[in-house]
Nucleic acid binder design. Sequence first.
DNA 1: GATGAATGAGCGTTCATTCAT
DNA 2: GATGAATGAACGCTCATTCAT
Lengths: 224, 224, 224, 224
Amino acid sequence: MMIHSAPTQEVAVIAQPRTNGTTDKRRRILEAAVHVFAARGFYNARVSDIAKEAGVADGTIYLYFKNKDDLLISLFEDRMEAILGRFRGELARVPDAAGRLRRFIELHLGMVAEDPTLAEVLTVELRQSAKFMREYKAPKFGEYLDLLGQTLELGRQTGEFRSDVDPAMLKRAVFGALDEVSMVWASSRRRPYELEAAAEQLAQMCTHGLLARDASGRKTGESP
Amino acid sequence: MMIHSAPTQEVAVIAQPRTNGTTDKRRRILEAAVHVFAARGFYNARVSDIAKEAGVADGTIYLYFKNKDDLLISLFEDRMEAILGRFRGELARVPDAAGRLRRFIELHLGMVAEDPTLAEVLTVELRQSAKFMREYKAPKFGEYLDLLGQTLELGRQTGEFRSDVDPAMLKRAVFGALDEVSMVWASSRRRPYELEAAAEQLAQMCTHGLLARDASGRKTGESP
Amino acid sequence: MMIHSAPTQEVAVIAQPRTNGTTDKRRRILEAAVHVFAARGFYNARVSDIAKEAGVADGTIYLYFKNKDDLLISLFEDRMEAILGRFRGELARVPDAAGRLRRFIELHLGMVAEDPTLAEVLTVELRQSAKFMREYKAPKFGEYLDLLGQTLELGRQTGEFRSDVDPAMLKRAVFGALDEVSMVWASSRRRPYELEAAAEQLAQMCTHGLLARDASGRKTGESP
Amino acid sequence: MMIHSAPTQEVAVIAQPRTNGTTDKRRRILEAAVHVFAARGFYNARVSDIAKEAGVADGTIYLYFKNKDDLLISLFEDRMEAILGRFRGELARVPDAAGRLRRFIELHLGMVAEDPTLAEVLTVELRQSAKFMREYKAPKFGEYLDLLGQTLELGRQTGEFRSDVDPAMLKRAVFGALDEVSMVWASSRRRPYELEAAAEQLAQMCTHGLLARDASGRKTGESP
DNA sequence: GATGAATGAGCGTTCATTCAT
DNA sequence: GATGAATGAACGCTCATTCAT
């Protein structure tokens, strides 16, 4: 298994082809926002703190983002964009649903291990955003969830998973499990468990728990 | 299965022995806080809104709670107290670990079905609290998680569950799954799935996924 | 002539029948706003300056007024209310249009002489308000202008004034003349002319200029 | 009478002898400033809006004007310069004071009819400027007023007007009347009166109201 | 000269908390 | 205990102005 999943190829090849000033400043602000939001939470984070950490003036932030809310949203979309790209590539390599589910779990927790700070923000602040901006639909996050949903649906249709699995609900359940495990790990100073081991256990639980047939080939009981 | 799990005994027996004014006012404030926090989120909720909804003056809130943070914390502790009592009673009736796990899942989602508003607050705002009050340890919430942890540990020790299950991590995973499923259900105007069905599926996934032996009695592979 | 037109009756009798706290604080804020707006202009006036001058906290202003704009508007309406009351009473005592026009001029300039600071604000800031709040209709100011308009219309209908006078336009002209004369007088440290003399001259110009017949009883030329 | 007083000669003769870039850019900025100040008012106008409308960069404005205030001041001086030239030429053709006064009124309102946008700015924003820049003396505006003042003084000295007319005050009154009538006309979407008719009425009122003798040759009463 | 990205001082407004009644 | 008017610290955001290119 590969938790510290080294960014496979594209990242290794070229980091930032063109570092034009604009992109750079925007990137620095987002980077700073991750740290400050992680450290203080969205509501307690001061825009001026982010500016200071990014090494720009307060006003500069408003050249790149509409307001504080937009900064958080952009952060989500920006990071999710990259994550989605990587996940799609990785999942495509795995043919069976159970394998994909396992890979997803490994990738998710691998990502958390790589960048705990980002994980904290994506994990904790996403919830509030659902509250404080009723209108924000987090499209990228929807796509992320759908990677899970599609995997579950695939397994259901191929008969790999039980016919009664409800992807719309279970994608939330699996995500919720990963998210909580991630948050606890990322938030606590002294890491309470190994993420690699966690990935293995969660993969076991999720895949075994959903399989249509057990190891002996016997059909598992489906809900009536 | 029993999602709309009617409060079994204690609540029915002693409703409110003494309705002294003080307790009543405190209760009304907490009640109002649930609604306002659910509707607007902790940070966007104004103390004066809670006061208005509770039918008391703004200042009165500070007679019962130290500050806004304390109001949220007290809300957690207060509700968790009741929940813990009920859960402990219910779980004690089930002898085996798998059955207890299933019962916990049913109770948790049943609780959400009973009081979605409360679920929204407990579910969403708990996350932020971890952020905004580093010091707050949420003792009752720890006890709640431990009900899960003890069940998992029980199963592990009796050999019902695989020997490698890590209760400290898995209690988080199970809780995360329940929490996310609850939040989505409680937050969306039109309920995206049935909570009863969700309980059944989650119980299946969690119990089957953790069992030491499959239905044929064969040992399931444990992680090396 | 009576420029320093002593407030005839009502004001002399009872100033403020009930000085309840609320009214008092609101009054002090409005009073302070007059001074600060007069001294610095609406846009350069800081809300905190007004608060300081009123002897209240910044936030207190927002208990009585929606925002800074509303403070200016309320100031207009409040002062105009009182002015309208006085003017209506005074004008009713004069039967002929020319006399009323003269009395209006005397009252207007008398008011300026009494409270130059208020005059400065009413005079200068009213213009901008028309600009910066397109929606604000300044109803009381409309009534004030109509006192002039009605006087002109009266004179036109009784034949006292020429039949071609256009009250809608001329009320603006007369007001504009008074306003400009007032503003210059109130704004300049060393008063450039006597307001009493100005009132006499303006009254002469306006009444003679509008009369249907000159002193010899001959009809004055009307515009074709 | 000639309200739509076509720019008599000079403008037709020399349009723009040299369109060197510098002058052109300055001109475009002033032009844009007129529109933006008229549309939003001085304080609500953003320098960047003016730059955009002028088709130049924000910084360019500061190559031609010291700051935003200076832009407004320069606008006044620039436009007044042209206006003064035209007015002086026109007034010189009229020998008697009453005729000149009438001509001034016609020219002023004619100017407003020609360029209402400019009128709005000159009219409304001039007031604030008196407030926000105590030091700005608006020399050209002073000259403009003096055209009126000199006319009144002329009439007084020749005995055409009553001997007690106070030019220093009355020039303000006449200007105020014209200004208010202009502002209302220029500001309201649907023009509330005809400017030509207004000019005629104001000319009547001002001249008749000031004449030393009425149509029958009888001396009008002077103030004691 | 021209640009426009960057700056940062400045201000309006909010709202948790206090305390005189 | 209960009130709610008053407080004032705190912060998001704007925009005139600068200056490196």
